[in-house]
Nucleic acid binder design. Structure first.
Length: 495
RNA sequence: GCCGCUAUAGUGUAAGUGGUUAACACGCCGCCCUCUCAAGGCGGAGAGUACGGGUUCGAGCCCCGUUAGCGGUACCA
């Protein structure tokens, strides 16, 4: 068997959405697993909607996910002549014919209804074969040469059964009588999808076609084309679709940016985390294992373990906190916790720069502090963006104060005296450490006969504006003596 | 209309060739951690496997039917 060659063939619709990303990933994993080649082909034959910017959107997504192709990007539009030549060959061999039926005008919204109406009517009257299917070749050629517009259709056998084996869905059968003579070339000379994919896949020597389940039934048409063109039929594997919440089809139009992979990049996902999450949508290694590195995914991946039923991707744009699938966020958090600090820190600094919180000394004389602080914060963050938002008080004095936190922790009147006193005691410490700060605070609490918790929680809000966060003395060490003291004094204004 | 695909807790998945009280993760709820938490630890609720038949000593796994969802059926991709 020839070595594996697979392709991901998106149309350039502006950005890569999670469904496409999952398809790309499975192709990539399969290629890696079998030592094959992963090829990217842009299906830009829908000329009206293709632009460089749209192509770039796809490329950005693929690249960020780390799924760079071994070959490509190739552009389908550059093979138009091959597509036409293939159709011409089928005409010459009598496997296709010219159809002079005038093109009927359809607009996108009503195609489906019109088609159903037509088919219903046809069910009553019975199907009639295309009147041009068997007209003499000479006559057809003469009409074409005289300039009469004609589409080219494939001659589909009138009886018999089409069969192929799908690596995910198993054996597939379809009666030829259920397949109409498909149009290969439009009457304006434009090649159609089914012809283009097959010609390209043959030319690129694709061995395994791995794509969305929406192509499953049309595969029979393509098999017919492979056979007509005398080419070897590749293996097919169709992947279950990914649905939006409510089990509806994922659509860029309706769901917008939440389904674009660049959104995940921009909102602080690690590519490895998204890859890991996507891999589990429609596939599992068989047991309880969920967190897997790329190499583990490659090692464990197999099409036999791919599911047949569609998976729901549970995003929710209106929820500020759980804006996307909670499990994806959880998994990203796991990656934030476990990624080696020297790899994580540069990703964090990217987000700080974006928020205007970055200082060059963080990678110079303050790099040790920076690493420690990132390490402290990451335990409870789920996205890289959290470092610039929730983590803001650690990088600037200009941070927001949560009113609920103030109400909860700074409402006690005694704090008006206690906080400045705490500030003074911390200021006088010769060595400012977790231990010395804690000792100072606790002795103050003892002397005043109050619980240390009162001071600790008040200090947390005074220092960070929040009611949640790391251990109090760890926060102090991260903020260091001067900023700790200043913020405790300033907090009196909040009381 | 016709053809096809699918169906396990809210979500993602387990449960090789039918065999103990259907498992795990996320989410949810509670408790603990008494310095908080959206962190961590522990525990709990939640499906009887879409529904109805059948085969079998025994079915989530096999068969038939129904329903629902989805896909295809285009001179869309």
């Amino acid at each position: 068997m020839a070595s594996v060659r697979v392709r991901f063939a998106p149309s350039p619709t502006g950005y890569l959405h999670v469904g496409g990303a999952r398809t790309a990933l499975f192709n990539w994993l399969y290629a890696r697993k079998h030592g094959g080649v992963f090829i990217l082909r842009i299906e830009d034959t829908d000329l009206q909607r293709s632009s460089d910017a749209m192509v770039q959107g796809i490329l950005d997504g693929i690249h960020w996910l780390g799924l760079d192709p071994g070959e490509g990007p190739l552009f389908q539009s550059s093979f138009l002549e091959e597509h036409r030549a293939a159709a011409q060959r089928l005409i010459d061999e009598g496997k296709a014919y010219y159809d002079f039926t005038p093109k009927l005008e359809t607009d996108d919204r009503t195609v489906k209804e019109k088609m159903v109406d037509r088919l219903k009517a046809q069910a009553q009257t019975g199907k009639e074969p295309n009147p041009y299917r068997d007209i003499p070749a000479e006559e057809a050629r003469a009409r074409v040469e005289s300039g009469e517009p004609a589409a080219i259709r494939l001659k589909v056998p009138s009886s018999g059964v089409s069969r192929f084996e799908d690596m995910v869905y198993g054996p597939q059968e379809r009666d030829y009588s259920d397949i109409e003579d498909l149009v290969l070339i439009r009457s304006d000379g434009h090649p159609l999808y089914n012809l283009s994919v097959v010609v390209d896949d043959i030319q690129m020597r694709i061995t395994d076609v791995i794509r969305g389940q929406d192509h499953l039934t049309n595969t029979h048409k393509q098999v017919l084309l492979y056979q007509a063109l005398g080419a070897r039929v590749p293996r097919f594997a169709h992947l279950p679709l990914i649905f939006a919440p409510g089990r509806e089809k994922l659509s860029k139009r309706k769901h917008g940016e939440v389904v674009s992979v660049t959104t995940y990049r921009d909102r602080g996902f690690l590519p490895d985390a998204l890859v890991n999450f996507l891999a589990l949508l429609g596939w599992s290694p068989g047991g309880d294992l969920e967190i897997m590195s790329r190499n583990e995914l490659i090692e464990k991946f197999s099409l036999e373990q791919v599911n047949k039923s569609a998976a729901v991707f549970n995003f929710n744009e209106s929820d500020a906190r759980d804006w996307t699938d909670p499990k994806a966020l959880w998994m990203n958090g796991e990656y934030i916790k476990s990624t080696p600090l020297d790899q994580l820190s540069p990703m964090v600094s990217g987000f700080l720069k974006e928020a205007g919180l970055w200082r060059p000394e963080y990678e110079a004389e303050r790099s040790e502090w920076f690493g420690r602080t990132v390490d402290l914060l990451r335990a409870r963050y789920r996205t890289l963006a959290d470092f610039a938002e929730l983590g803001r008080p650690y990088f600037t004095d200009d941070f927001p104060c949560d009113p609920a936190a103030v109400k909860k922790n700074l409402k006690d009147d005694r704090l008006k005296q206690l906080l400045p006193e705490l500030a003074s005691r911390l200021e006088s410490l010769a060595e400012f450490t977790h231990e010395s700060a804690e000792a100072a605070l606790r002795s103050l609490a003892d002397e005043q006969g109050i619980k240390a918790g009162l001071l600790i929680n008040a200090a947390r809000t005074a220092l960070t504006g929040q009611s949640v966060g790391p251990g109090m003395f760890e926060i102090m060490v991260a903020l260091e003596q001067t900023r700790t003291v200043d913020r405790l004094r300033r907090a009196v204004h909040l009381l």
